[in-house]
Computed example of a mutant assay.
Amino acid sequence: MADKTETFAPGAAQLETLARAALARIPEPFAAHLADVVLVIEEFADDAILAEMGIEDPFELTGLYSGRPVGEKSSFDVMAMPDTIHLYRRPLLDEWCDTGVSLEALITHVVVHEVGHHLGLSDDDMHALEDAAG
Rank of each mutant, 00 (worst) to 15 (best):
Met1Val: 11
Met1Gly: 15
Ala2Thr: 11
Ala2Leu: 12
Ala2Lys: 11
Asp3Arg: 14
Asp3Ser: 14
Lys4Cys: 12
Lys4Leu: 14
Thr7Ile: 11
Phe8His: 13
Gly11Ala: 09
Ala13Met: 12
Gln14Val: 09
Glu16Pro: 05
Thr17Ile: 10
Thr17Cys: 14
Thr17His: 15
Leu18Pro: 00
Ala19Ser: 02
Ala19Lys: 03
Arg20Gln: 09
Arg20His: 06
Ala21His: 08
Ala21Ser: 15
Ala22Ser: 10
Ala22Met: 06
Leu23Trp: 03
Leu23Lys: 06
Ala24Glu: 10
Arg25Asp: 06
Arg25Thr: 03
Ile26Cys: 07
Pro27Arg: 07
Pro27Cys: 10
Glu28Val: 09
Glu28Pro: 13
Pro29Tyr: 08
Phe30Gln: 14
Ala31Cys: 13
Ala32Val: 05
Ala32Tyr: 08
Leu34Ala: 08
Ala35Tyr: 05
Asp36Pro: 05
Val38Glu: 12
Val40Ala: 07
Glu42Gln: 12
Glu43Arg: 11
Ala45Asn: 00
Ala45Ile: 00
Asp46Lys: 05
Asp47Trp: 07
Ile49Arg: 09
Leu50His: 00
Ala51Phe: 07
Ala51Leu: 08
Ile55Cys: 07
Ile55Asp: 04
Glu56Ala: 15
Pro58Tyr: 04
Pro58Lys: 01
Pro58Cys: 01
Pro58Asn: 04
Gly63Asn: 02
Gly63Gln: 01
Ser66Pro: 03
Ser66Trp: 07
Gly67Phe: 02
Pro69Tyr: 02
Pro69Met: 06
Val70Arg: 10
Val70Tyr: 09
Gly71Pro: 05
Glu72Arg: 08
Lys73Thr: 08
Lys73Met: 10
Lys73Gly: 08
Lys73Val: 06
Ser74Lys: 05
Ser74Met: 03
Asp77Asn: 00
Met79His: 12
Ala80Asp: 11
Ala80His: 09
Ala80Cys: 10
Met81Asn: 15
Arg90Tyr: 08
Pro91Asn: 04
Leu92Arg: 02
Leu93Ile: 03
Asp94Gln: 14
Glu95Pro: 06
Trp96Phe: 10
Trp96Pro: 04
Cys97Thr: 09
Cys97Asp: 14
Asp98Met: 13
Thr99Lys: 10
Ser102Ala: 09
Leu106Phe: 06
Ile107Asn: 01
Thr108Met: 06
His109Phe: 08
His113Ile: 00
Glu114Gln: 05
Gly116Trp: 03
Gly116His: 01
Gly120Val: 02
Gly120Trp: 01
Asp123Met: 12
Asp123Phe: 12
Asp124Leu: 13
Asp124Ser: 15
Asp124Asn: 14
Asp125Trp: 09
His127Met: 12
Ala128Cys: 11
Leu129Gln: 02
Ala132Tyr: 04
Ala132Thr: 06
Ala132Asp: 07
Ala133Gln: 01
Gly134Gln: 13
